[in-house]
Protein backbone atom coordinates (compact mmCIF):
# COMPACT_ATOMS: atom_id res chain seq x y z
CA UNK A 1 0.00 0.00 0.00
CA UNK A 2 1.26 3.45 -0.88
CA UNK A 3 1.96 6.29 1.49
CA UNK A 4 -0.06 8.57 -0.74
CA UNK A 5 -2.46 7.72 -3.54
CA UNK A 6 -3.82 10.21 -6.07
CA UNK A 7 -6.86 9.11 -8.02
CA UNK A 8 -7.70 11.28 -11.02
CA UNK A 9 -7.08 14.39 -8.94
CA UNK A 10 -7.98 17.82 -10.31
CA UNK A 11 -7.02 20.77 -8.11
CA UNK A 12 -7.66 24.38 -8.90
CA UNK A 13 -9.14 27.73 -8.05
CA UNK A 14 -12.63 28.94 -8.86
CA UNK A 15 -13.32 25.83 -10.99
CA UNK A 16 -10.25 26.43 -13.19
CA UNK A 17 -7.92 23.46 -12.91
CA UNK A 18 -4.28 24.11 -11.97
CA UNK A 19 -3.48 20.41 -11.74
CA UNK A 20 -5.53 18.36 -14.16
CA UNK A 21 -6.35 14.63 -13.92
CA UNK A 22 -3.36 13.43 -11.95
CA UNK A 23 -3.23 9.80 -10.86
CA UNK A 24 -0.45 7.88 -9.21
CA UNK A 25 0.89 6.38 -6.07
CA UNK A 26 3.81 7.40 -3.88
CA UNK A 27 5.32 4.38 -2.17
CA UNK A 28 6.27 4.61 1.52
CA UNK A 29 9.84 5.83 1.86
CA UNK A 30 9.91 7.35 -1.63
CA UNK A 31 12.11 10.35 -2.36
CA UNK A 32 10.12 12.12 -5.05
CA UNK A 33 11.03 15.32 -6.86
CA UNK A 34 8.23 17.36 -8.40
CA UNK A 35 9.58 19.29 -11.36
CA UNK A 36 7.92 21.72 -13.74
CA UNK A 37 7.94 25.33 -14.90
CA UNK A 38 6.49 28.16 -12.83
CA UNK A 39 2.71 27.83 -12.77
CA UNK A 40 2.87 24.10 -13.42
CA UNK A 41 0.78 23.39 -10.34
CA UNK A 42 3.50 22.11 -7.99
CA UNK A 43 2.46 24.28 -5.05
CA UNK A 44 -1.20 23.63 -5.78
CA UNK A 45 -0.59 19.88 -5.71
CA UNK A 46 1.20 20.18 -2.35
CA UNK A 47 -1.57 22.32 -0.88
CA UNK A 48 -3.96 19.60 -1.93
CA UNK A 49 -1.85 16.89 -0.29
CA UNK A 50 -1.64 18.72 3.06
CA UNK A 51 -5.37 19.34 3.02
CA UNK A 52 -5.36 23.10 2.54
CA UNK A 53 -7.09 22.89 -0.83
CA UNK A 54 -10.02 20.61 -1.54
CA UNK A 55 -9.76 18.77 -4.89
CA UNK A 56 -12.26 19.88 -7.55
CA UNK A 57 -12.49 16.23 -8.54
CA UNK A 58 -10.83 12.94 -7.67
CA UNK A 59 -9.43 11.84 -4.32
CA UNK A 60 -6.17 12.19 -2.42
CA UNK A 61 -5.67 9.36 0.05
CA UNK A 62 -3.08 9.30 2.82
CA UNK A 63 -4.10 5.77 3.82
CA UNK A 64 -5.25 6.43 7.32
CA UNK A 65 -2.86 9.25 8.06
CA UNK A 66 -4.37 12.67 8.78
CA UNK A 67 -3.42 15.61 6.55
CA UNK A 68 -2.16 17.25 9.74
CA UNK A 69 0.38 14.45 10.17
CA UNK A 70 2.14 15.66 7.05
CA UNK A 71 5.00 18.08 7.69
CA UNK A 72 4.75 20.89 5.16
CA UNK A 73 7.23 23.62 4.25
CA UNK A 74 5.37 26.14 2.08
CA UNK A 75 7.16 28.05 -0.66
CA UNK A 76 6.10 31.45 0.63
CA UNK A 77 6.13 31.30 4.40
CA UNK A 78 3.64 33.66 5.97
CA UNK A 79 5.88 34.37 8.98
CA UNK A 80 5.71 37.63 10.92
CA UNK A 81 9.44 38.15 11.41
CA UNK A 82 8.92 41.16 13.65
CA UNK A 83 7.11 39.04 16.25
CA UNK A 84 9.05 38.98 19.53
CA UNK A 85 9.81 35.25 19.73
CA UNK A 86 13.15 33.47 20.11
CA UNK A 87 14.58 30.86 17.75
CA UNK A 88 14.25 28.26 20.52
CA UNK A 89 10.54 28.93 21.06
CA UNK A 90 9.87 29.10 17.33
CA UNK A 91 11.48 25.72 16.66
CA UNK A 92 9.60 24.35 19.68
CA UNK A 93 6.36 24.84 17.72
CA UNK A 94 7.33 21.66 15.84
CA UNK A 95 6.51 19.71 19.01
CA UNK A 96 2.88 20.88 19.03
CA UNK A 97 1.47 17.50 18.06
CA UNK A 98 3.46 15.87 20.87
CA UNK A 99 2.79 18.37 23.63
CA UNK A 100 -0.69 19.46 22.57
CA UNK A 101 -1.93 22.97 23.21
CA UNK A 102 -1.32 22.90 26.95
CA UNK A 103 1.42 20.32 27.55
CA UNK A 104 4.62 21.63 29.10
CA UNK A 105 8.05 21.82 27.53
CA UNK A 106 10.12 19.67 29.89
CA UNK A 107 13.68 18.45 29.93
CA UNK A 108 13.09 15.88 27.17
CA UNK A 109 11.50 18.48 24.87
CA UNK A 110 14.28 20.98 25.54
CA UNK A 111 16.84 18.34 24.60
CA UNK A 112 14.94 17.54 21.39
CA UNK A 113 14.90 21.23 20.43
CA UNK A 114 18.63 21.56 21.16
CA UNK A 115 19.36 18.52 18.99
CA UNK A 116 17.24 19.84 16.13
CA UNK A 117 19.06 23.19 16.26
CA UNK A 118 22.38 21.36 16.28
CA UNK A 119 21.34 19.26 13.27
CA UNK A 120 20.73 22.38 11.20
CA UNK A 121 23.83 24.17 12.50
CA UNK A 122 22.07 26.81 14.58
CA UNK A 123 23.55 25.98 17.98
CA UNK A 124 24.13 29.25 19.82
CA UNK A 125 21.16 30.96 18.18
CA UNK A 126 18.60 29.80 20.79
CA UNK A 127 17.92 33.20 22.36
CA UNK A 128 18.08 35.25 19.16
CA UNK A 129 14.88 36.91 17.99
CA UNK A 130 13.74 35.38 14.69
CA UNK A 131 13.77 38.83 13.05
CA UNK A 132 17.58 38.95 13.33
CA UNK A 133 18.19 35.85 11.19
CA UNK A 134 19.45 35.92 7.60
CA UNK A 135 17.51 34.20 4.81
CA UNK A 136 19.66 31.06 5.01
CA UNK A 137 19.47 30.89 8.81
CA UNK A 138 15.71 31.30 8.57
CA UNK A 139 15.49 28.29 6.25
CA UNK A 140 17.71 26.28 8.61
CA UNK A 141 15.37 27.19 11.46
CA UNK A 142 12.33 26.03 9.46
CA UNK A 143 14.09 22.72 8.78
CA UNK A 144 14.77 22.33 12.52
CA UNK A 145 11.04 22.68 13.12
CA UNK A 146 10.33 20.10 10.39
CA UNK A 147 12.75 17.72 12.16
CA UNK A 148 10.80 18.04 15.41
CA UNK A 149 7.50 17.35 13.66
CA UNK A 150 8.77 13.80 13.21
CA UNK A 151 6.33 13.20 10.33
CA UNK A 152 6.05 10.10 8.13
CA UNK A 153 5.42 12.29 5.09
CA UNK A 154 7.37 15.50 4.49
CA UNK A 155 6.40 17.96 1.75
CA UNK A 156 8.92 20.64 0.77
CA UNK A 157 7.89 23.38 -1.66
CA UNK A 158 11.01 24.79 -3.34
CA UNK A 159 13.08 24.47 -0.17
CA UNK A 160 16.36 25.65 -1.72
CA UNK A 161 15.24 28.85 -3.43
CA UNK A 162 17.43 31.88 -2.73
CA UNK A 163 19.68 29.78 -0.49
CA UNK A 164 23.47 29.64 -0.91
CA UNK A 165 25.33 26.44 -1.89
CA UNK A 166 26.60 25.64 1.62
CA UNK A 167 23.16 25.95 3.21
CA UNK A 168 21.51 23.96 0.38
CA UNK A 169 24.07 21.18 0.81
CA UNK A 170 23.51 21.06 4.59
CA UNK A 171 19.75 20.99 4.22
CA UNK A 172 19.95 18.40 1.44
CA UNK A 173 21.83 16.16 3.89
CA UNK A 174 18.79 16.36 6.15
CA UNK A 175 16.56 15.33 3.26
CA UNK A 176 18.83 12.33 2.62
CA UNK A 177 18.68 11.49 6.33
CA UNK A 178 14.87 11.53 6.24
CA UNK A 179 15.00 9.24 3.20
CA UNK A 180 17.39 6.87 5.01
CA UNK A 181 14.99 6.81 7.99
CA UNK A 182 12.25 5.54 5.66
CA UNK A 183 10.19 8.71 5.61
CA UNK A 184 8.36 9.72 2.45
CA UNK A 185 9.70 13.01 1.08
CA UNK A 186 8.18 15.10 -1.72
CA UNK A 187 10.07 18.18 -2.90
CA UNK A 188 9.31 20.73 -5.60
CA UNK A 189 12.58 21.72 -7.24
CA UNK A 190 13.94 23.70 -10.20
CA UNK A 191 17.54 22.48 -10.16
CA UNK A 192 17.45 19.60 -12.68
CA UNK A 193 21.03 18.54 -11.92
CA UNK A 194 20.27 18.34 -8.21
CA UNK A 195 17.22 16.18 -8.94
CA UNK A 196 19.25 13.83 -11.17
CA UNK A 197 21.92 13.48 -8.49
CA UNK A 198 19.71 12.97 -5.44
CA UNK A 199 16.12 12.04 -6.23
CA UNK A 200 15.44 8.51 -7.49
CA UNK A 201 11.91 9.36 -8.59
CA UNK A 202 10.45 12.37 -10.38
CA UNK A 203 7.03 13.69 -11.32
CA UNK A 204 7.23 16.12 -14.23
CA UNK A 205 4.21 18.37 -14.00
CA UNK A 206 2.89 21.00 -16.40
CA UNK A 207 -0.70 21.55 -15.22
CA UNK A 208 -1.14 17.98 -16.45
CA UNK A 209 1.27 15.18 -15.62
CA UNK A 210 3.93 14.87 -18.36
CA UNK A 211 5.71 11.88 -16.88
CA UNK A 212 6.08 10.12 -13.52
CA UNK A 213 8.66 7.46 -12.73
CA UNK A 214 12.41 6.88 -12.45
CA UNK A 215 14.18 10.20 -12.69
CA UNK A 216 16.35 9.11 -15.64
CA UNK A 217 13.26 8.09 -17.65
CA UNK A 218 11.30 11.23 -16.78
CA UNK A 219 13.86 13.99 -17.28
CA UNK A 220 14.43 13.42 -20.98
CA UNK A 221 14.93 16.28 -23.42
CA UNK A 222 11.58 15.54 -25.07
CA UNK A 223 9.66 15.51 -21.80
CA UNK A 224 11.26 18.74 -20.58
CA UNK A 225 10.41 20.42 -23.90
CA UNK A 226 6.79 19.26 -23.58
CA UNK A 227 6.60 20.67 -20.06
CA UNK A 228 7.97 24.01 -21.24
CA UNK A 229 5.23 24.37 -23.90
CA UNK A 230 2.56 24.25 -21.22
CA UNK A 231 -0.16 26.83 -21.50
CA UNK A 232 -0.22 28.93 -18.32
CA UNK A 233 -3.25 31.15 -18.75
CA UNK A 234 -6.69 30.09 -17.65
CA UNK A 235 -9.29 30.22 -20.37
CA UNK A 236 -12.11 32.34 -18.95
CA UNK A 237 -14.59 30.71 -21.29
CA UNK A 238 -13.46 27.13 -20.95
CA UNK A 239 -16.22 24.56 -21.16
CA UNK A 240 -16.80 22.17 -18.28
CA UNK A 241 -14.37 19.29 -18.42
CA UNK A 242 -16.07 15.97 -19.16
CA UNK A 243 -13.05 13.69 -19.07
CA UNK A 244 -13.61 11.24 -16.27
CA UNK A 245 -11.06 8.62 -17.08
CA UNK A 246 -7.65 8.94 -15.46
CA UNK A 247 -5.02 10.39 -17.77
CA UNK A 248 -2.32 8.25 -19.23
CA UNK A 249 0.39 9.23 -16.74
CA UNK A 250 2.12 6.14 -15.48
CA UNK A 251 1.76 5.37 -11.78
CA UNK A 252 5.08 5.09 -10.03
Amino acid sequence: MGALTLRNVTLGYDRHPAVHHLSGEVTPGALLAVVGPNGAGKSTLFRGIVGMLKPLAGTISLHGANARDVAYLPQVADIDRSFPISVFDFVGMGLLRRTGLFGGIGRRERLAIEQALQAVGLTGFEARAIGTLSGGQMQRMLFARLLLQDARIIVLDEPFNAIDAKTSADLLDLVRRWHAEGRTVLAALHDIELVRATFPETLLLAREPVAWGDTADVLTTDNLATARRMCEAFDEHAAACIVDAPSSARAA
Binding site: P74, I79, D80, M93
Partner: peptide, 10 residues
Protein backbone atom coordinates in the same frame (compact mmCIF):
# COMPACT_ATOMS: atom_id res chain seq x y z
CA UNK B 1 3.96 34.29 14.08
CA UNK B 2 3.17 31.63 11.49
CA UNK B 3 -0.55 31.18 10.72
CA UNK B 4 0.10 28.82 7.81
CA UNK B 5 2.04 26.46 10.06
CA UNK B 6 -0.66 26.44 12.73
CA UNK B 7 -3.24 25.65 10.06
CA UNK B 8 -1.15 22.75 8.82
CA UNK B 9 -0.80 21.09 12.24
CA UNK B 10 -3.88 22.05 14.23
Amino acid sequence: VDPLFLRSVS
